[in-house]
């Protein structure tokens, strides 16, 4: 059965919230393992891996270095070089926080890599804010890939005019103006035309709207979403009720 994009969003979001609220590393590691398994099963693991690595590698390294070496609150010292002290508490803190963050990042990325953006847009395009929010999301995702080819075209045009990108910050800063001004100008002007086009096609006017694309939303999934949201709220409430439990 195909999941409604909002159902999978509720699942991913609730999982991230509950993992953060629970703050127990066995749960975090389990979530990581499950998310990794799902990404392999869903055939997105290969596309996801670079994105995950770009985000998590510096984050985890930064946490380990920061708290592994400097944790003034730590008492059980394992090693010491000058001002740097490796403490059990520091490593524990770094590990817990890293696993927790990795879990949240993985489930959210798994969601964005597996959903169909058009389905999400259609699901959000009911009315009012949703339609406008859906527009911003979808339009950004459409413009992004086009921008790199447009930047490439501008760079070629400028090189044909004599632009030589010199190494170093000054050279780069000079190249910024050559490339960013035509890019921004054309984007802003195009946006003006697009605004007129959208308004003429009734975008922005109030009143009921319909959807050409059909996204099935069986009642069972609506119930699942409600339950997932309640679970997330309950997890937050439980954590706020007992702020330090499990630590």
């Amino acid at each position: 059965m195909r999941l409604h994009p909002l159902t999978s969003l509720a699942a991913a979001g609730s999982t991230a919230v509950i993992t953060t609220a629970a703050a127990s590393w066995p749960l975090s590691v389990t979530v990581i393992a499950v998310a990794a398994g799902l990404s392999v099963a869903g055939g997105v693991a290969r596309r996801m891996l670079p994105a995950v690595a770009v985000i998590l590698v510096p984050l985890v390294l930064s946490l380990l270095a920061m708290h592994g070496l400097f944790f003034p609150e730590g008492t059980t010292v394992l090693a010491q070089w000058g001002p740097a002290r490796v403490t059990v508490e520091g490593l524990h803190f770094a590990f817990e926080r890293a696993s927790q963050l990795s879990a949240a990042v993985l489930v959210l990325l798994l969601w964005s890599f597996t959903i169909s953006v058009p389905d999400l847009v259609a699901a959000l395009s009911t009315r009012g804010v949703h339609a406008r929010f859906a527009f911003v999301v979808a339009s950004t995702l459409t413009l992004l890939p086009a921008i790199s080819s447009r930047l490439g075209r501008i760079r070629q045009a400028q090189e044909a005019r004599g632009l030589v990108i010199r190494p170093g910050i000054v050279g780069r800063a000079g190249a910024f103006r050559w490339q960013a001004v035509p890019l921004v100008l054309s984007l802003v002007e195009e946006a003006g035309t697009r605004a007129a086009a959208l308004q003429a096609r009734g975008f922005g006017s109030s009143g009921p709207r319909t959807s050409y694309r059909e996204v099935p939303d069986p009642p069972a999934q609506r119930w699942v979403r409600v339950v997932l949201l309640l679970a997330a709220v309950a997890a937050i409430a439980a954590r706020l009720w007992q702020p330090t439990a499990g630590a």
Binding site: E96, R97, G246
Partner: peptide
């Protein structure tokens, strides 16, 4: 500790 309510 890391599981504190502050994150939430």
């Amino acid at each position: 500790g890391p599981g504190s309510a502050s994150a939430l």
